[in-house]
Nucleic acid binder design. Structure first.
Lengths: 196, 196
DNA sequence: CGAAAATTTGACATGACTCAACTGGAGTGG
DNA sequence: CCACTCCAGTTGAGTCATGTCAAATTTTCG
């Protein structure tokens, strides 16, 4: 499959697959293109695929009992997106994944995922490492939320992901940072003043 | 190794090892007993082992620039403890792991970890699943911190881990919940009043 | 029993939220 | 090319959740 090239490159950074393994892998995954606004996953549905983003941008979020939207993560090229909890346990998801731009993805369907990893132990290894990374950065985020102020979190976000702020509306960034859009507006004003 | 029994039972819940694999596994891991107050890992050191807790209780925490202690997690029997980020990348850790009681653990040393998982693909699978779980619960914690009040988080903690509050001092629970000990004290008073 | 540690209490401070009004740009249609 | 609307972003006043500090009380444990 032509479109799988970036995924194969990405995998090669962690493990080395044989040509046969690559062919097998490619036979089990799907390419798909979503338009801006479309949902890859909706709260309450079971996540049937794990997605590798080729291009575009997605947000993963959930809506709480008060109707408030909370963004868990954004995903751009070479990142993953999906509710892993729903995917591995095949239980209804608490999250939505929605495309903020036209977005191309490679999808691993659940019904071949486990079998594929068993058939290709190197791929099992690959996913173990990917999930290790995800877990580590998730833990880091918990720490930051505890020990940093909203302003510090905002500044750090721009250091860590310098390219993302331009691509998303400000109210979504506020949601990701765990603050209101009004408060983010005030923070930005302060930061701008300090830099001048 | 006699003491590895609980670990083997735990592993069997996820994958089925052959007797030969169990022997190989046991030859690569170590039993160790720590006393109350001892450190399994200190901030700045590289984490050389991944620990499975047999008995006792540990806290994982870090000290921020203001000297404030933030507890990331507690671990009791049948849980894991270690800074996975430091362990897999072999970089200095941001965290401490300290024993709150006399604690027995099984340790996977780094220098045999990757080789062991390669030799026993089922073990690779096992760890992938364990880490998946850890990642999922880490994400859940992020969500809770965003969408719940301190009081709700406290109540939920006791629902999720009913046995832990009795084993740890209150100021540590406050640190885990991300609030001050004074505020937790006030919350507990309120909750007690409501239940009467 | 006495000292040290943990917890509670109260007064006050502050970071972040709510709500409502306002501004300013990006279509859209006439 | 203007008027209208719509949405994102801004501003300000008032409020609430939680933090700070210091003192009082209770618990733990040698």
């Amino acid at each position: 499959m032509e479109q799988a090239k970036p995924l194969l490159n990405y995998i090669q950074k962690h493990v080395t697959l044989t040509p046969e393994e690559e062919v097998l892998l490619c036979s089990k995954i799907n390419y798909r293109k979503y338009l801006k606004g479309q949902y890859i996953l909706q709260q309450g549905d079971v996540s049937t695929t794990q997605c590798f983003v080729l291009s575009g941008c997605t947000k993963m979020f959930f809506v709480d009992d008060d109707g408030q939207e909370h963004i868990i993560m954004f995903s751009i090229a070479d990142w993953w997106t999906s509710d892993l909890g729903s995917f591995v346990a095949q239980t209804p998801s608490d999250f939505n994944v929605q495309c903020l731009e036209t977005t191309e993805v490679i999808q691993f369907p659940y019904n071949t995922y486990e079998a594929l990893l068993e058939a290709i132990p190197k791929l099992e290894r690959f996913f173990r490492k990917i999930i290790e990374q995800a877990f580590v950065s998730s833990q880091k985020r918990i720490i930051r939320n505890f020990s940093l102020s909203a302003k510090e979190r905002y500044v750090l976000f721009n250091l860590n992901y310098p390219h993302i702020e331009q691509r998303i509306p400000q109210y979504m960034l506020a949601s990701y940072l765990g603050i209101t859009k009004e408060f983010l507006s005030k923070i930005k004003k302060e930061v701008a003043k300090e830099q001048s």
